Simulated assay, not measured.
Amino acid sequence: MKYGLFFGDSITYGEYDGVFGGWVDILKRYALQKYNEGSKELILYNLGIGGETTEGLVKRISHEMEARNSAAGNIVFIGYGANDMAVKNGTQTVEPERFKANIITAVQKAKSYAEAIYLISILPVSANIDGIAVASGKRRSTAQILRYNRILQEIAGEYNLNYLDFYSGFVADKELLLSRDGVHPNEKGYGIMAEMAIPIIEKYL
């Protein structure tokens, strides 16, 4: 059996989805259903941690992968940036250059175990919080999201990785796909994410 390991923040974890448990949980159920129907076995691990940035990722990715290393092969998904690019008290949580270095470090560590690596874009935010500090004190803007997404795309191109562009799948209908907080998807949004990711999962079933 192969393993799929999903690293990320609360959006990977599935926060704010009380119906399906988030996009990774939807994929877990899909892979299990396919296995029961006769497909190859693919075990998916949701390793998302709410509030985490790439600083946390580089500290734990090797340990996490050592603990879940399939001899048949591992597929790694890396979904960060929503917390890194947030500004709080006038300071960017993780500056763009540091963000890029952290992602590259994580990719290099993952390559020791992974047969395929997918970098995941940052989602858009709702218009009513774009550039505005919310209750947590964090401020996110479309300009910064696009800047950090460009970094992810550049790394994907430079290191021959896959890029999963959830941003493009969301942006036109973002007000219908985001939760009340304007940052996390709602159950419909998580469903769209799962639909976009299912063709990737099917390649390994």
Rank of each mutant, 00 (worst) to 15 (best):
V107L: 11
G18M: 00
V87I: 15
S126D: 11
A172W: 00
R60M: 05
I200F: 09
N46S: 10
I129C: 03
G81E: 02
V134A: 11
I155K: 11
L152G: 03
G81A: 06
I49H: 04
H184W: 01
K111H: 08
I145C: 04
G131N: 07
S126E: 05
S70G: 02
F6G: 03
E66V: 15
Q153N: 13
G157K: 11
S70I: 01
V183L: 15
G22M: 10
K138Q: 14
S179R: 11
F6Y: 09
N186V: 05
Q153H: 12
D9V: 08
A197N: 02
E202H: 10
N186E: 04
E195T: 08
R147V: 11
M196I: 12
G137T: 07
A194Y: 10
L123D: 07
N83L: 09
P199T: 14
Y113E: 00
A106K: 03
K109D: 08
F6T: 03
Q108E: 15
E37C: 05
T105Y: 07
N89M: 08
N89H: 08
G90N: 12
G48H: 10
R180Q: 13
L42H: 11
V58G: 04
Q144N: 14
A156C: 06
T93Y: 02
G48P: 09
L164Q: 12
T142S: 14
I122Y: 03
T105I: 01
F99Q: 07
G18C: 00
G191A: 08
I129E: 01
T142V: 06
I43Y: 14
K109Y: 05
H184M: 09
L32E: 13
I200N: 01
I103Q: 14
D17H: 13
I104C: 08
G21D: 04
Y159W: 15
S168F: 05
H63G: 00
E195V: 05
S126F: 01
Q153I: 13
G81I: 02
E97Y: 09
S126I: 01
A72E: 12
I145F: 08
L146P: 03
G22T: 06
M193K: 03
D165M: 15
I103M: 08
A101V: 00
E55D: 00
R180I: 14
Q153K: 15
R147Y: 13
I132Q: 11
Y30D: 11
E154I: 02
D130V: 13
Y13L: 07
E52L: 02
G131D: 11
V58F: 05
K88P: 00
E195G: 10
E66P: 03
R140M: 13
G169K: 10
L152F: 04
L57K: 04
A116E: 14
G182W: 10
N162W: 13
S62H: 05
S126G: 08
R139S: 11
A114C: 08
L123C: 08
G48W: 03
E41R: 15
P96S: 12
E202G: 09
R29S: 12
E52V: 01
Y3D: 02
K174N: 05
S121I: 04
N149C: 11
T105L: 12
E175S: 14
F7I: 07
M1W: 01
N128L: 07
M85H: 09
E66A: 15
E37P: 00
A114N: 06
S62T: 13
I117H: 01
Y148R: 09
S39D: 13
V134E: 15
V76T: 09
D165C: 12
I78G: 02
K88F: 00
G38Q: 05
F77G: 03
